[in-house]
Design a protein around this nucleic acid. Structure first.
Lengths: 237, 237
DNA sequence: TGTACATCAGTGAACGCGCGTTCACTGATGTAC
DNA sequence: TGTACATCAGTGAACGCGCGTTCACTGATGTAC
């Protein structure tokens, strides 16, 4: 590979490569590990070449954060899709809500670096999940929490919060969640799962052994279900 | 101040000063802002002087983390102490539990840097809350989550988790929390409050306006109370 | 009570490191006529 | 279809920065006799 190789890469390959490299760095060491020079090294390009594609390091980090969040959303969607049962079926509704929580916790445990990165908003450059989309269109995370189900013409809301809302709507449709309590309930539920993920991932509970960890997961998902429906969850197995 | 000033400081003053300086840095910018050289500058001492008191930067950070956690514990204890009512009184029990959550959320909101630092365990040097104690003795945070109320002869457990356990015990004593559900319930409750603190502090909900933030707080504390006692919390005001 | 000496806690100078970022450049690609 | 030229996307070299950390030192403090 001499100077003939200068422009062999297809359009956008370097940019995509930098984001992919940043994602690998984030996977290993979290957002702080997303080092611009290291990413260019991995792509096989000179450091300042990155500035053809990003204004600065923070903009690269924003892209990596968005990609991490997209990865989480994808895993959650896959977990939900794996649960059989028609909409309106109470068991299916409970199963899908549980799948959402389980996928969230599994991602945090299996990919702690990416999980931390997904929620590490860069200082300067806001990012939307849309930026990370490889598929068609996505909606913004609605950070104001104003509410609604995201049916604003941009397609289903694939963000974690959007998927949670969908599951809670289904729970209400199935008659398991009182309608009067539906409004805004996604935030306490989200907080509970997120809190456990953080405490057990990088927080004071990070050293609990795996069996106890699983127990905490079930205890917490059970607490949520009880808080929503007033019923204890069925014991698995 | 010439060379005569060389050893004017009382014993331990530099070490304490470094931790205090680190705490101020953490208050402003979180754990990453705890820069050894900057702390020595604030104390008015040459950079390598820090190595008389700490093995390396990480050990300084550990002390600052412990001090941050202690600050949180102190605020929680103060909030609980402000609630009147004898032990066993149901209203008082609910009030103290609520005070714990409120103090936790208030600390996260008012001191985001310290809150992040309290939960940013340094890589190498584990810390215990005992390290940060200015008063007599304290118990360790029991990171294994094995359980128990911490009555192991080391005095009352002032850690956040310990205080939460005390409040939940009182709730059970008052008959508001079913004894069969008491065991381990502190973890889902902790996770819920912690999750909201993180999401609203540095997470995707960090830009919600203050009134909505308060609404989220009440919604979440209400979710917890409902999950524990099966009763909706009384509306304030 | 006074002296000798070990220890403690600071100074001064320097190090290597890797980072983000800027500058002037050059060759390859795509477009207009 | 062929040529002229603007733009794009890379190179090469260098910068200043502040960091954590190490070394040899020195003066002040506390202790033993």
């Amino acid at each position: 590979m001499r100077q003939t190789e200068r422009r062999r890469r297809p359009r956008g390959a370097v940019r995509d490569g930098l984001v992919a490299a940043g994602l690998e760095l984030a996977r290993t060491g979290g957002p702080d590990a997303v080092v611009l020079r290291e990413a260019t090294r991995m792509v096989g390009v000179v450091p300042n070449a990155a500035y053809r594609h990003f204004a600065d390091r923070d903009e690269l980090l924003a892209a990596v954060c968005a990609a991490s969040m997209d990865e989480l959303a994808t895993r959650m969607a896959a977990g939900v899709a794996r649960v059989p049962g028609r909409p309106g079926d109470p068991d299916a509704a409970l199963g899908r809500l549980s799948a959402i929580g389980t996928a969230y916790l599994a991602f945090a445990r299996e990919e702690p670096g990416l999980f931390a990165t997904a929620f590490a908003l860069p200082q300067q450059h806001a990012y939307s999940v849309r930026d990370a989309a490889t598929g068609p269109d996505r909606a913004d995370p609605d950070p104001t929490g104003a509410g609604g189900t995201g049916a604003d013409g941009t397609g289903p809301d694939r963000t974690p919060l959007g998927q949670l809302r969908t599951a809670l709507d289904e729970l209400a449709d199935a008659g398991l969640l009182d309608r009067s309590r539906r409004d805004g309930i996604e935030y306490p539920v989200w907080a509970t799962v997120h809190g456990l993920a953080v405490l057990a991932g990088s927080g004071p509970l990070r050293d609990v052994p795996e069996t106890a960890r699983h127990h905490l997961d079930e205890l917490t998902l059970g607490f949520i279900q009880n808080g929503l429906t007033g019923t204890e969850p069925a014991l698995p197995g």
